[in-house]
């Protein structure tokens, strides 16, 4: 069973019981504008919650994606190196950034579910 959570920084986290896939929400993609470059982390690196792991450059500015929890990066979406525009076009699908094995899956609990996230956007 998949668990989907959202961070206040507009990242979506999808946990399949083993790894967490990380991307940005449609709201974030829209705010960011056309993405022209994505810098991805190395696979098999250990990260600490809050580490800058991905840099997204849009036509307007650079934005960071932070590690949502402690863990190890297991896979990156190398498709984005040649097609960074996938982040803008398909943020919830082909535009994902990386997968990580969380040190403690319970860390997911601190994040919002879909209803909470919708309320968060509406209020911001």
């Amino acid at each position: 069973m998949l668990i989907v959570k959202y961070t206040p920084e507009h990242e979506w986290l999808e946990y399949n019981g083993e790894v967490v896939t990380v991307g940005i929400t449609e709201h974030a993609a829209e705010q960011l504008g056309d993405v022209v470059f994505v810098e991805l982390p190395e696979e098999d690196t250990s990260v600490t919650k809050g580490d800058e792991v991905v840099v997204i450059e849009s036509v307007k500015a650079a934005a960071d994606i932070l590690a949502p929890m402690d863990g190890v990066i297991t896979e990156v979406n190398s498709l984005l190196e040649d097609e960074p525009e996938l982040v803008s076009k398909d943020p919830l699908g082909q535009g994902w950034f990386f997968r990580m094995k969380p040190a403690d899956p319970a860390d997911l609990d601190q994040y919002m579910d879909e209803a909470e996230y919708k309320a968060h956007i509406a209020g911001s």
Binding site: G33, D34, V59, K60, E85
Partner: peptide
């Protein structure tokens, strides 16, 4: 206006 719905690139 910084951009319209079609976006800067388009």
């Amino acid at each position: 206006p910084v951009q319209y719905p079609s976006g800067v690139m388009a």
